[in-house]
Design a protein around this nucleic acid. Structure first.
Ligand SMILES: [Mn+2]
Ligand SMILES: [Mn+2]
Ligand SMILES: [Mn+2]
Ligand SMILES: [Mn+2]
Lengths: 220, 220
DNA sequence: GAAATAATTTAAGCATACTTAAAAATATTG
DNA sequence: CAATATTTTTAAGTATGCTTAAATTATTTC
């Protein structure tokens, strides 16, 4: 293996497996913005190389080799994000795109060195967990999208969707960042939008926005 | 443009232009370890895209657009090398290969940030000059290969060939690094090898090795 | 300056990773 | 459960960047 495309396929598969550990071609095509036909092609190759279990029309699962490879790609991506953000000072809405390219161009040795410099971070700048060198994932706190909170409730942001630069740039302007507390002042039924309070300021945010911000779920 | 191969061609052309600002296909093929036929193909594309001046059998020159692109690639490469060496702590014999990949995966914004962190370095870990953001090259000191020194002369190392990991690893073991002084104790005529003294220790080094280590030429 | 040698280009072909369009299989719905 | 809709696969084709072998052009040598 030595391939940007294949690495992106594996990473995408890994990050989008359903609870049964499977994924369908259409979802991969959507996430990678390519045709389903292209996905079918690549699935055959990944299967032939032993990275996935694939039978036509049956869905896809990772082999343990594929899972290890994919998990390492996620590790590379997220360590780069932390490094770019914390050490290089790049804003959190720019690091994802940069990491998406760097992840394919760095040796494991480099990644391990960055990890040491960062003192073994457990989460990336968007709250996503970073696999450790030996493949372990840190515990993930119970969470739900902001859109599922009720009127009057509040929640502490612990994760945000990192795939859209505009989204991140916009919520930054509202003062939304990890660990920030958000209060749901009102839910507008007409369009499912939310009136929220952040750092004492009020904003109206769309349902779609709220679906991409995740808050900690307090133990019952 | 968005291409690893093309970027490597341009960088290779830039770094190997003869004093008249030209280069022949065979040299490019050799440096990139590919066939001359492949080079001919690519030269047509680079020419069509306005990066080089190319007429068959006539040799190659960079357009100003091509020169700017190529110089920026060299800049990216060398800034990465300094960063990996100084900030990340990677040894000088490993940074070239890593930078060879990272150079294609980093935005100008990232490179500029690294440059600021490094306080605008002028030379990479092997003594090669780093083009500035506005395309200026730092002054290069007069230099010649160690192999051209006479018996009894000595010289301060200001540049080494960075393209071979084994070479760099080996000379490191001999204590050779930038700014180190090397004394030519004896030239062995039979095989053109040199008996040299470095930090008080004596070594015999081959002619080929000595041709890849450059020392400052003192003003006459 | 002709013959031999070396460098370069052309030609044909291959692997990769995509595309669109058509066919086949699966899933949904009335 | 049959008709319809959706998803997936197959088929055919494209661009990129290589390869080897043959043809062409340039350079060197006598
Ligand atoms: Mn990627
Ligand atoms: Mn992230
Ligand atoms: Mn390169
Ligand atoms: Mn270097």
């Amino acid at each position: 293996m030595q391939n940007i495309s294949k690495e992106d396929y594996l990473s995408t598969i890994f990050r989008n497996l359903n609870p049964e550990g499977k994924i369908k071609p259409g979802l991969i095509a959507g996430k990678l913005s390519i045709s389903s036909a292209a996905v079918t092609d690549m699935l055959r190759k990944l299967s032939a190389e032993g990275y996935i279990i694939y039978e036509r029309y049956k869905g896809i699962a990772l082999t343990s080799e594929g899972e290890n490879y994919a998990r390492n790609m996620v590790r590379r991506h997220r360590i780069w994000e932390v490094f770019l953000n914390k050490v290089v000072g790049m804003p959190w809405d720019k690091v994802h795109e940069e990491a998406n390219r760097l992840e394919h161009s760095s040796s494991d040795d480099l990644i391990n060195r960055l990890e040491v410099m960062l003192d073994f971070p457990e989460y990336d700048p968007h709250g996503d967990p970073i696999p450790s060198r030996d493949g372990k994932m840190p515990k993930i706190k119970r969470q739900k999208p902001l859109s599922e909170l009720e009127e009057g409730e509040s929640g502490r942001v612990i994760r945000v969707n990192d795939s859209d630069e505009n989204f991140l740039g916009y919520i930054s302007k509202l003062g939304i960042m990890l660990k920030e507390n958000i209060v749901i002042k009102k839910k507008i039924m007409f369009d499912e939008s939310l009136e929220v309070s952040i750092k004492g300021k009020s904003w109206n945010i769309s349902s779609k926005l709220a679906q991409n911000i995740f808050v900690e779920v307090k133990r019952d």
